[in-house]
Amino acid sequence: MKLTLKVWRQKNREAKGAFETHQIDGISPDMSFLEMFDVLNEKLINEGKEPIAFDHDCREGICGTCSMFINGRPHGPKRGITTCQLHMRSFQDGDTIVVEPWRAGPFPVIKDLVVDRSAFDRIIASGGFVSVNTGNAQDANSIPVAKEDADDAFDAAACIGCGACVAACKNASAMLFVSAKMSQLAHLPQGQPERRRRALAMVAQMDKEGFGNCTNTYACEAECPKLISVSNIALMNREYLGATVKSDE
């Protein structure tokens, strides 16, 4: 396959970026999108140019590192997968592909297609946990959890923290990410003691990071590689309202 790539290049956080166009030939439909970038980078290195920096690690769709905005969609045109799981057979010979980094105020570009997603870490640090020190735990089977609740918790916990929800949202809102963690813990008995505190703290941190507000376009759900449901956002709204009304803070 022969392709034209328009890729965002940006030296560093402060620099002004611009698109750079590359022609690339000899692409196999069996390659993953990132392998296509490997080929391009190899070519750039051989030509004495600087390769394109992009984030990637596990290349099997679970670590959440890869993050390309491809032809106007996070992780490209297919549903329920990450960029590393996207294969070139999803494109046509001769296509022009535009690749941009995730764009959001709280996700500043570090270089080229690499962005800083540490805002997500800070949100988790604000309350996305159960406060249980090692050794505190009772026997694992001492608290039964309804299978339905465990399944719901799991579905929410499947979030890989890639940030596609923020990237897809026209408001750069992080509510799908935040609500997924809140929902996981709200569905489990272990998460109950800190439920209100968690809701208040995580929302406060999310707002502080400067993410936009949710306007329920549901683009996040449509683009989430793990198909996390927006019903989690509704749950978060409930949690937050409940916490505001009931909490002593």
């Binding site: 505190n136 735990a137 299978k147 272990q190």
Partner: peptide
């Protein structure tokens, strides 16, 4: 090994469960 499962469940790790609510 058993303590690990206890610890993880307490952290909210959603292990697979049976209908009776046990692991």
């Amino acid at each position: 090994s058993g303590n690990i499962i206890d610890q993880c469940v307490a952290q909210g790790v959603p292990f697979a469960r049976e209908y009776g609510g046990l692991l």
